[in-house]
Every structure is written in structure tokens, then in C-alpha cells.
Design a protein around this nucleic acid. Structure first.
Lengths: 274, 274
DNA sequence: TCAAAAGTGTTATCCCTACACCCATGC
DNA sequence: GCATGGGTGTAGGGATAACACTTTTGA
């Protein structure tokens, strides 16, 4: 680039087409927790983590599932705006928790053109969702099976179809816990989205321990049992009741409301303490 | 976008110019720890955190300081490749610890054109640096003054010039510790780089507590006193010796080597335990 | 001899784990 | 009555903070 003394001189010469350009997209990993009805009237409904996928009806990756996403309009919006716009289109909801995950820029990401994509994770309480979700979209329950430190199997299920893919983890840096993810088995998920999904889930798993992020997936009033189940399903391990209650005690506020009709002692309803 | 049955049909119609495009850059926050010589022969050299800035000699922001960075070549490289290339150019070093920070996409970032920029943090041991750093580049010692929760003053000093800027922190989400940073006083730093600098420092401050990231800024052999000083300067607080030694005990390995000639009892040299 | 930092041991405190236990409900 | 989840108390162990103390050097 040449040297310019001032803006007038610069703009006289400046030709934007000199610079190599590219397209950007945002991909959104929308995460929620679903409840499976139990046959035993006493038991509480089983919780599962679930994510929203969209069926592609165009080239490339036609008929495969992908994360909701869209092209950035460089003239009018930031990446955050773009992510919000996509979410609004897919779920008809605004005011969803949204956090930037990572910017992926592999050269062979899209066979059409050079694309860089910034991924976001979004959290939502499923109760807030109306029936207005996009007809091409579907919620999949997600299960992570970590065979060992180096390999993760991910199973997605939307009650009509079961999808699974496998990701290999290779340690990139000894000093941190940073891994390079490589998809080694995948036939149904488009683009590099298997990696975006795993990255997002791992981020959520981590962040639940040192933030209050989980309350973005909860309704206004909830029982401590429900809250504990969400922690358990995200961290994928059973927690001890008394320990859990102590940990979240100062994050929640007990209300007068009570949850009855569950086949056991009624539970107090709590809300997030602001 | 239209619907296509297969690639041939798609490519026949496909015109890349239909899509809005933009330019991308990477900005790199290169962080190191510098040692200030002490007048008292007994005292150990005082440590400071320092970052590399480059003086701009072109429009826009001519004569202001900015982070090393450069345009992404979309045809040939990923963002990580681009960051490595910039680092190589500025410091003549490869194999530097590099981690993606955040992708900034404010509309008014650059008056010339629409740019999205992905920032990276890079850590380096200053002893490895030869004299080959770019002539426009200079190391600045950095001091963070947190007046209160909402405001941070940052002072940069390269022994010729002192720069300071102020950033306001506004809580974005109650559920996490995410803040929106706004520059409210700044005359010497170009673009949105004040915010990139603060974000990077905060990340480092956090990550030092749960990873071994600090060893990327250390020489192969070091004393525990030196290591402790680096922790102290990054976390900006004094640590107690016995506590510190217990915490890092299983991360380091004692060697036969000893550091003498320091005006006090010689200290054992340690290395990072792989 | 002395200042400075290297390096170690000890206690008091806090926090978390694990377990035991009681409570209240719907069928 | 009983299975189920709601909800609470407590003892034991491990980690940490704070402090005191000894060691070793160069000038």
C-alpha cells in the first residue's frame, strides 16, 4: 500500500477492487434442553440437550443437515447483527443469548467460493419457542460418547432420523487444552459443521462451571431439581443433591410458588437472582 | 439462492459477483515480559508485561500506533496462516504460541472500506527475539489501572513515548461476565485496537489460572522466582511464595543447573515438565 | 556482617464430598 | 403403604492462606 498524506489524497487514488475480497457467513449453534415424558408417573421427565439443524435443499451438500446460518451483508450489519437476523428467521425469537464461538477459515470449506464463517452459540428455553420455527428446521437430541481422550462420537436424534459422526481430537498445544478437531466419519452433516457443533458443546460444558449461563436455558420459574438436571445433562455426570444446592444457593431466589402434581413431595419454585 | 440438483447445473449458473464481499485482516497482540534493570545489585530485575506496536505511516490513522496486522489473502491462506505470516514479518520468528481471540466487525472500523478483522494473541519469550524486529515496531510496557469495575486506564510506555487510553466496561449479560468495551479516551492508538489490547490482556489474565500458557513466555530454564514474577505481573497481584510453589510444583521439573551471581542465595533452575 | 531472595514447615480455616436422614406427595 | 423426588444436617478429608522460620550468597 502506498503512503498518503491525508484523506483527500488517499481517496483520489483509492480503488477498492485492488483488494482481494471474500464472503462471510455466520453459523449458529442453537442449544436447548428437551424433556422426554416418562411412563412411570412418579419419575421426572428425562432431560436431553438438543440443537437445531436445518435441512439443505440446495447445492452444495443438498439434503444434508446444517446449522442455521446466512451470508453477512457487509454494507449494513455486523456479524452479531447477522446472527440475530438468522435466529429471528429460524425461531421467530429475539433476545436470545448469543455468544461468538470461533471464526473458521479453512480454504475448502465451501466448494462454491472462498468463505470465512464466524460461529455463534445461542441458548434458549424451549418453552419460549412458539410453533413458528422454520419448516425445514428440526430439533435433534444430542449425545456425546467419548470413547477415549482422542475420539468423540456424536449422535443426533430427532425421532425420525438418527445421525452420527465422529471427531478425532489431536492435541495442538501442550501448554493449554487446545485440540485440533478432525471429522473422521460423517455422511449427513454439511460443511465443517460437525466441528462447530463439538466446539460449541465443549464451550458450554466449560462455561456452565464458572458463569450463570445456564439460566438462559431456563424458564422464569423452575425447581432446583430441574436446574440440577440441566447441569447434569450438560456436564454429562450425576451431581449430589446437597452439594449442588449449596453451589447454586446464592444464584437463585426462592418464591412462594410451588410445583405440585408430580407424584411426590411438591417442590418450591425458584427464580434467577439478579 | 436458487435450488440446484447437482454441481454441474450449479456451476453453469453460478456468478460469484452476485454475493457482497469484503476484506478481512488479522491483528496480532504480541505479548511478552520485559525485565527492568535494578540499581540495587541484590534486587532481582523488575518485570513488566509488554506488547508490540507498529507506527503507521499511511492513511488512515497516519502516525498513530497499531497492532501488527495485515490483509488476508483469500486465495491462499487461512486466518491462522495470515497471522503467522504477519508475525514472521514483524519478529522474524516462527513457532510462536498463537490463539484466536475474537472477530471484530464494527461497520466504521476502517474509513476506507468494509473490513472484518480477526484478532489473535501471541506469546513470546523475549530472549528468543533477535534484533530483527521491524524498524517501525516498538515494545511498550503496559500498565492497567482499574479505577473501578467500570473503567480501565491503560498506560503504554516504550521509554521514548507514553501513551494512555481509557476504556469503559458495560455489563452486556448478567449471566456471564461479558462486558461491552467502549473507548472513551484515546488519541494515539489506531482503529479499534484499544479494545483488542484490553480483550487480549483479560484473556491472558484468565487463562494463566487454568492452563500452562505462561510457559510460552518463559525461556527453557528459569528459576521459580522468575516464574512467580511473571504470574504476578500478569495477574497484577503479589503471591505468597509457599503457596505458589505448591501450585506449580507438578508443572515444573528441577534441573541440575543453578543460577548464581545474583547477590543472594543461588536458585535452582527448573524447566517445564512435558 | 547483612540484605535479599531461596526455600521449607506448620497451623488454622474453608470448602467440598459423601452419606445419612427426614418430609410430603399421588396413586 | 410405598416409591419417588424434595430437602437438610454433619463428619471427614483435602486444599489453601498466612505466617514463621532456616539457608545461602555477593559485596
Amino acid at each position: 500500500m502506498e503512503e498518503y498524506k491525508n484523506e483527500t489524497e488517499f481517496l483520489k487514488d483509492y480503488n477498492p477492487d485492488e483488494y482481494e475480497k471474500l464472503s462471510m457467513t455466520t453459523d449458529i449453534l442453537l442449544v436447548s434442553v428437551s424433556s422426554k415424558k416418562q411412563t412411570n408417573y412418579r419419575k421426572t421427565s428425562k432431560k436431553m440437550m438438543s440443537i437445531l439443524l436445518v435441512k439443505r435443499d440446495e447445492y452444495p451438500y443438498k439434503d444434508m443437515w446444517c446449522l442455521p446460518g446466512g451470508f453477512l451483508n457487509p454494507k449494513t450489519e455486523t456479524l452479531g447483527d447477522c446472527a440475530k437476523r438468522v435466529l429471528k428467521k429460524e425461531t421467530n425469537l429475539s433476545d436470545i443469548y448469543l455468544e461468538q464461538l470461533y471464526t473458521f477459515s479453512e480454504l475448502d470449506r465451501d466448494p462454491r467460493m472462498r468463505i470465512v464463517s464466524t460461529s455463534y452459540i445461542a441458548l434458549v428455553d424451549k418453552n419460549k419457542l412458539t410453533e413458528n420455527i422454520n419448516e425445514k428446521a428440526s430439533w435433534f437430541d444430542i449425545t456425546l460418547l467419548e470413547e477415549d481422550e482422542k475420539k468423540v462420537d456424536i449422535v443426533l436424534d430427532n425421532e425420525e432420523e438418527t445421525i452420527s459422526f465422529t471427531i478425532k481430537k489431536t492435541l495442538k498445544e501442550k501448554t493449554t487444552d487446545r485440540y485440533k478437531y478432525t471429522t473422521i466419519k460423517n455422511t449427513k452433516i454439511a460443511f465443517d459443521h460437525p466441528i462447530v457443533i463439538l466446539s460449541g458443546i465443549e464451550r458450554l460444558k466449560n462455561k456452565i462451571n464458572y458463569t450463570d449461563i445456564v439460566f438462559n436455558m431456563m424458564p422464569k420459574y423452575f425447581t432446583l431439581g430441574e436446574l440440577q438436571q440441566v447441569y447434569e445433562v450438560i456436564q454429562n455426570k450425576k451431581l449430589l443433591d446437597p452439594a449442588f444446592r449449596r453451589i447454586i444457593a446464592d444464584k437463585v431466589e426462592k418464591t412462594d410458588k410451588v410445583q405440585t402434581g408430580e407424584g411426590h413431595r411438591p417442590s418450591a419454585l425458584f427464580k434467577y437472582k439478579k
